[in-house]
């Protein structure tokens, strides 16, 4: 086992937990959305830490491809959530 791998995986778990807790606690939509994205970033970090294989070897490319997909999906989901929030505000203002 490589120590950096464990350190960064634990950091990912920490970030995931911080994000999860805030997602459950916040009531404002934007804060929740930010927290959810932080939570997702934690999951990505766990993945990539596990894919790491030390200084000398190329890291496992499969999790890399999955996380790359994840980043793009996360940003489009965020765009959709922001559009929904905008619509909700418009409806509340009327």
């Amino acid at each position: 086992m490589i120590s950096e791998q464990l350190l960064f995986a634990l950091c990912g778990i920490g970030i995931f937990s911080i994000g999860l807790r805030a997602t459950l606690i916040h009531q404002q939509l934007l804060s929740r959305l930010l927290a959810l994205n932080v939570c997702g970033a934690g999951v990505f970090l766990i993945f990539i830490a596990i894919a790491y294989r030390g200084e000398t070897q190329i890291a496992d490319p499969v999790p890399h491809a999955l996380v790359l997909t994840g980043i793009v999906v996360a940003v489009s989901a965020m765009a959709m959530a922001l559009a929904l929030r905008h619509k909700l505000k418009d409806l509340n203002d009327e």
Partner: peptide, 11 residues
Amino acid sequence: LAWARLKAPDL
């Protein structure tokens, strides 16, 4: 930066 550290330059 963390991705770069973990040898994931694409990310």
